[in-house]
């Protein structure tokens, strides 16, 4: 009967954990013992068989299936990834948000009644009156109030957040404009800014 430790040495050999002295003991024994040699060969064969079946591949949609089973991602993370993937859009949207923010805040701050200063304009209870038979020269701009035109305005009339009444005798040489919604108001701002810019260029060209 062979010593028990010989079989252990065989396993150590297969685990590649055998030291040279033990390997020599094993080899010497195998040379002299047919039975152990047979067992050793069977073990080596088993080892090769099991190694031979090792490689396997997961089903093709495995990853997608795992991700579908995960708890929902936090919105914050999704947004962060979107921002890093679309830097230009991010910059643009930040810009738009800031723009809108400043416009809205100035819209809401702009609640006080005001009117452009001109001769012959009469103010009564937040209503600007162009009296009958009088003539106002220049553009009239009214914020947060109404305007009643009974006389003549030689220029444009703009009413922001208010209403205009044009009496039958009233007369405006320029345009009459009412701005009541915030988007109208923004559009009005854009127009006036553009006009100012054109005006500046016009002046410099004239020089």
């Amino acid at each position: 009967m062979c010593p028990e430790q010989i079989v252990e040495l065989m396993h150590d050999y297969l685990d590649e954990e055998i030291d040279p002295a033990n390997e020599k003991t094993l080899r010497d024994h195998l040379k002299s013992c047919k039975e152990c040699e047979m067992i050793f060969n069977q073990l080596k064969k088993t080892d090769a068989f099991v190694k031979g079946i090792s490689h396997m591949q997961a089903p093709p949609d495995f990853t997608a299936n795992v991700l579908a089973r995960l708890p929902k991602e936090k919105k914050k993370v999704w947004m962060q990834r979107w921002f890093t993937n679309h830097p230009m859009l991010t910059a643009a949207s930040v810009f738009i948000i800031l723009m809108m923010g400043s416009l809205f805040s100035s819209w809401s701050q702009d609640q006080a009644f005001s009117v452009s200063k001109q001769k012959n304009l009469v103010v009564k209870n937040n209503t600007v009156i162009v009296p009958k038979g009088k003539t106002v020269k220049g553009d009239v701009v009214v914020h947060n109030g109404n305007v009643r035109i009974e006389g003549e305005v030689q220029g444009d009339v703009t009413v922001i957040n208010g209403e205009k009444y044009l009496a039958s005798a009233g007369h405006v040489t320029g345009q009459i404009e009412e701005v009541n919604e915030v988007f109208d108001w923004i559009w009005y701002h854009i127009k006036t800014t553009a006009k100012d810019v054109i005006g500046i260029f016009g002046q410099s060209n004239a020089k």
């Binding site: 252990e8 396993h11 297969l14 069977q42 073990l43 080892d47 068989f49 099991v50």
Partner: peptide, 12 residues
């Protein structure tokens, strides 16, 4: 080692 021994017996 035990597992491999069992496999050896089955697969010999």
């Amino acid at each position: 080692h035990r597992g491999r021994e069992a496999l050896r017996q089955q697969l010999r």
